[in-house]
């Protein structure tokens, strides 16, 4: 379960002064649900998700993730979250097995538990062929699978995905989409940020449209369609954010 309450984040920039990256963002995501955060580049998706993953502290407002407060119990939040982003890479000089085990240990798992989980994840994700090879030699697909295994090693209740398909080819992107759906089917609480409209249609139960740091609209796709009078997701998005920009 994720509950964001007026999450706000401001940054100070020497040249531009105070920048509001996210402002009063509130939403709820229940277990077994995928919440899609749809927005253009620089809309505030990454900042919002980083606050939920406790990488950034909110300037104002707050959030509860898996029952823990993101400010007061940051470590407990992280212990219950799997965070996968295009920017979260692997250690190139470690093997996939070592990478997974490293995060298992940091999540407090015992050696036996890590072994058991690694075996299970490797079987689920078809990783056996490259489990003992170094990550820097991996194809994009292998890297994705290893990253997924890394986020799942401690079997977190909440999954946060920040544009995980960014820069991936079709096949690698499909693996991710399948995996996100799997997470929902296993009853995990999932939040998924993207600017790819087709992914929203394929995956998300609820969609939040974020623009200029503000959550402008929220609802299921049929609800958004009814509200905007548009059927195409792209048109819904454009209409919500105030039309085409020059």
């Amino acid at each position: 379960m994720i509950e964001a309450r007026q999450l706000t984040k401001t940054f100070r920039d020497k040249k531009r002064g105070e920048i509001i990256a996210a402002e009063d963002i509130s939403f709820r995501v229940s277990p077994g649900q995928i919440y899609g955060l749809l927005g253009a580049n620089g809309a505030g998706k990454t900042t919002t998700l980083r606050m939920l993953a406790t990488l950034l502290q909110p300037t104002r407002g707050g959030a509860t993730v898996a029952g823990f407060d993101v400010v007061r119990d940051a470590a407990k939040v992280r212990a219950n979250v799997g965070f996968l982003a295009a920017s979260t890479a692997l250690y190139g000089r470690l093997t996939a097995r070592e990478m997974i085990a490293y995060f298992g240990r940091l999540n407090g798992l015992t050696g036996a538990k890590i072994k058991e989980r690694t075996q299970q994840l490797a079987a689920d994700l078809e990783m056996d062929d490259f489990l003992d090879r170094r990550c820097d030699k991996f194809s994009t697909g292998m890297k994705q699978k290893t990253s997924i295994a890394r986020t799942l090693i401690h079997d977190p209740a909440v999954m946060i995905f920040d544009e995980p398909t960014l820069g991936l080819d079709v096949m690698a992107a499909r693996t991710i989409v399948r995996f996100v759906r799997d997470c929902r089917n296993r009853g995990k609480t999932v939040i998924y940020s993207t600017h790819v409209m087709s992914e929203v249609e394929k995956l998300c139960d609820v969609v939040g449209i974020i623009h200029g740091g503000k959550l402008l609209a929220e609802g299921t796709l049929p609800e958004l369609r009814a509200r905007t009078g548009e059927t195409d997701v792209e048109e819904i998005f454009v209409k919500t954010v105030g039309g085409d920009q020059p």
Partner: peptide
Amino acid sequence: ERGTMETILCSPVA
């Protein structure tokens, strides 16, 4: 630069 800093910061380690 390699993007592993964000990965490790996501773990519960202080």
